[in-house]
Design a protein around this nucleic acid. Structure first.
Lengths: 145, 145
DNA sequence: TCCCAAAGGTTGATGCGTCAACCAGTGTAC
DNA sequence: GTACACTGGTTGACGCATCAACCTTTGGGA
């Protein structure tokens, strides 16, 4: 059971990642960052806010932002209020990329995952997510400091 | 919903990986390979068999085996029947490692995942796994050639 | 027999993710 | 106002995963 779950998720992530890469030239991680920034006012967020939003580790975000900056998807700017907290802003290229990528990706998630499941199954899965996440939290209280 | 699922699985994998690393000094990938070999007759398998068992890509397995060989967990031997198909064998170190790692890992999976879910939820999840995997197969028939 | 395609693996490059170590502003106690 | 801890990020090293290119053996034909 655990094995099957593990495998299902991996294959699913692989298929989604491949589609995203072929259709839009970005990875799932890129997509998550772009989506978060696109929803933010001014398409700009503090790195800290991005991290809590995505629940990522700080070094992971730093590496990701560096790579995305090299490709011109985002830009870093210093923040006048707090010198140690750089701002991350979506560039025009980044905006275009997420706009063109989002519909196809959402459709693919529906096709491979959401539409495959009945409403009851979705509901059960949703509750299962919550329970497991809760257990993870209580088990490791300092998860994303 | 999709996001929650995505996040749940990632956090779960992270927690399991950390436990495994701390308790036994191996990764989840190491564990999967060791477990498959331990169940095989003579603790030996063809790389091809290992690949279909784990549903891994061939280069992934090659890299993994190379790393594990360097650490002394497995050994590669040439097969007399077919010169292009090396055999992978569990070493004594590998056997000890998996024997000491397996109980703790299984307990952790139970603790964080299986025991968190009701029988109904487990059942729903099990069916969901099957449905999604089936959809992935039909969508991408040449998945692991 | 010889050539060639298919099967089975390996290698190198690159991106992703974690950990540990480090650095730079911020703010607070004294 | 100076020392010091805290917060927030960066960097380097390493393992993991994928892709594309390559190499070797095998097994058939012509």
């Amino acid at each position: 059971m655990w094995r099957t779950f593990h495998r299902m998720r991996n294959q699913l992530a692989l298929a989604l990642g491949q589609s995203l890469q072929q259709d839009s030239g970005i990875s799932e991680s890129d997509f998550e960052v772009l989506a978060a920034l696109a929803d933010a006012p001014d398409q700009t967020m503090r790195a800290r806010a991005l991290r809590t939003e995505l629940q990522w580790e700080k070094s992971r975000l730093a590496h990701q932002i560096r790579r995305m900056e090299q490709r011109g998807l985002v830009a870093r700017e210093v923040c006048v209020d707090d010198g140690r907290a750089p701002l991350v802003r979506l560039t025009a290229t980044g905006r275009d990329t997420i706009r063109s990528a989002a519909p196809a990706h959402a459709a693919r998630v529906r096709e491979l995952f959401l539409d495959a499941l009945s409403p009851d199954q979705l509901d059960a899965l949703h509750q299962a997510n919550a329970v497991v996440l809760a257990r993870l939290h209580q088990n490791c209280p300092a998860e994303t400091p």
